[in-house]
Design a protein around this nucleic acid. Structure first.
Lengths: 195, 195
DNA sequence: GTCTATAGTACGATAGAC
DNA sequence: GTCTATCGTACTATAGAC
């Protein structure tokens, strides 16, 4: 297909999202201007509006895409007992988050910059993830494998602990990813089973 | 002392800080304007500069004050064994954070909006807190009370888990503060001792 | 699809009156 | 200590040319 010089929709669209994600994660949604995003993509600011109706929609799309990818990864949850499933969840959560730091970060930090409608949808998706974790804890509790006084609180505590990894882990650091996963699994296992 | 009408330094100064803290926590530093702060205090924007050299200094002062209060609370750490000290830390962390939500929140969210120099100082203060927690874990490890493969990782994991409470706890909710503290202490104890 | 140009608004910070 | 007024700059978003 013949195409005008400077027309690169298939490349430019993803690049806009990529740069926006990076810049939002680094400086925060409110602190990043459309001009700044455009500059990093190699466009004038006005041209961004070919790819997003406005700045808010750009943020929302990035956050929703992140959550949808996180949730679709849950389809690989292995069959088996709650203990095996919980270990898989711990490792999946840590490794997915570490390989998608920017997405994780904006989903944490930018909730308050969403419109009310968009906020509701992202919170809903987050709830689906929390429910998936809690379902494992409930199953283990019912079979007497776990000793958990409150499965919802335990769910939030486990997720919070695992989220913490992203704040300090460095690939060049002292501990390998496998070791970090393993130590966290040990702590989570002991926290929910007492053994 | 006679005083001009509208002169209220002793009242206005704290009120500026109070409103700034509230607004920064609610909307984010970058999204809040000096005009907005002034309006909530009952001033014109220019008058704010009687109380802070600029917006950045206002943020930094709020964050530093929060960390200094958190750290000065550590002076009440009871003498005794590592297990008793760790329980105290868990309860202190949860209850202090829940009673100073806005301060906790901006110290989490606004690090990236600090100048490099200010960022260094806040990170240093945070490090002092982390070191205090780790010292307890190290003491327990040395006495054979804890079984922790890596005390630094365990420190970060415990702090992350406890920080999570602020994201979901509501006073009007299902669980009392005491119960939340107690359940978390149980999980932390089991995570570090395996019993 | 991207550009230039711009409308309309808001920002942080300062100057000088009172 | 607070006000009014304002400087200089930056913002989101749109219009119209190519």
């Amino acid at each position: 297909m013949a195409r005008k010089a400077g027309s690169h929709a298939e490349i430019t669209g993803p690049k806009v999202r990529e740069e926006a994600l990076r810049l939002f994660a680094q400086y925060g949604y409110a602190a990043v201007s459309m001009r700044q995003i455009a500059k990093h993509v190699g466009l004038q600011a006005g041209a961004l509006y070919t790819y997003t109706p406005d700045k808010q929609a750009l943020l929302f799309d990035l956050m929703r895409d992140h959550m949808q990818k996180v949730l679709s990864g849950l389809e690989d949850l292995p069959e088996g007992g709650p203990v095996e499933q919980l270990e898989w969840m711990v490792r999946y959560h840590i490794s997915y988050n570490l390989s998608h730091k920017d997405g994780v970060f904006i989903n944490y930090m930018e909730l308050r910059n969403l419109s009310e409608e968009n906020h509701l949808e992202i919170s809903r998706l987050r709830g689906v993830y929390e429910d998936a974790v809690e379902a494992i804890l409930i199953a283990g509790q019912e079979r007497g494998l776990f000793q958990i006084p409150d499965t919802r609180l335990a769910t939030m505590a486990v997720i919070a602990m695992l989220n913490g990894v992203n704040t300090w882990y460095r690939e060049s650091g002292r501990l390998s990813l496998e070791r970090v996963e393993q130590i966290h699994w040990n702590m989570v296992r002991r926290a929910v089973t007492g053994s």
